[in-house]
Amino acid sequence: MRHAYIRGIIGLIWLAAAIACGISGIFPMMGLYVILAIAFLYSAYTIWKREKDGKGGR
């Protein structure tokens, strides 16, 4: 379950970086950071969902 928390936190950090780039006007980097945030947050969600359903494993 720690992996889900760590990936969620990293996803939120990437999302904050995307917001900061959007505010400062660096749109190509903002797009990259949004993609990375979505990837990390989706990964955290799937791990959390799998652990919640009791499937476990890898």
Rank of each mutant, 00 (worst) to 15 (best):
I23P: 00
L12D: 09
M29H: 04
S24E: 07
I13D: 09
Y5N: 12
W48D: 11
R2A: 14
A16P: 00
L36G: 02
A18R: 05
I35R: 13
A18F: 09
A44L: 06
I19V: 15
L15I: 00
A16E: 07
L36S: 03
A4C: 08
G31Q: 12
L36T: 00
G31T: 07
I6G: 02
W14D: 04
L32R: 05
I19T: 04
I47V: 12
T46P: 01
L12M: 14
F40P: 01
S24H: 08
E51K: 09
L32S: 07
I9V: 11
K49Y: 13
M30S: 04
A44Q: 03
I10E: 12
K52T: 09
A16F: 03
W48G: 15
Y5E: 14
A44D: 01
R58F: 15
I47M: 10
A44H: 04
S24K: 11
A39K: 09
I9Q: 14
I19N: 06
A20P: 00
M30W: 00
G25K: 06
M1P: 07
I26D: 14
P28E: 04
D53M: 13
E51G: 00
A44V: 02
L36R: 05
G22F: 01
L15W: 07
R50T: 14
Y42P: 00
A17P: 00
G8E: 02
R2C: 03
A44M: 06
G56W: 02
I35D: 11
G31L: 12
H3Q: 14
V34N: 10
M1W: 02
I38H: 01
I35C: 13
L32V: 11
R7Q: 10
L32G: 03
L36N: 13
D53K: 12
A17Q: 10
L12P: 01
C21I: 00
V34L: 15
T46W: 04
E51Q: 15
L32P: 01
Y33A: 07
Y42W: 05
M1R: 11
I38P: 01
K52L: 11
I13E: 15
G25P: 05
G31S: 06
A20L: 14
I10T: 08
G11Q: 12
I13N: 08
A37C: 10
I13A: 13
A4V: 06
A4Y: 10
L36H: 07
T46C: 10
L41H: 03
A44I: 06
A37H: 02
L41T: 06
Y42C: 11
T46L: 11
Y33K: 02
L32W: 07
W14S: 00
L15R: 15
I47K: 11
A16Y: 03
R50L: 06
L15P: 00
A37Q: 08
L41G: 02
M29D: 05
M30I: 07
G22Y: 05
R2W: 04
I26M: 05
I26T: 02
G54F: 09
Y5H: 06
I23M: 05
Y42N: 01
A20N: 12
L32I: 12
C21N: 13
V34Q: 03
R50H: 09
F27H: 10
G22N: 04
I47W: 05
S24C: 08
I19R: 10
W14E: 06
I9F: 11
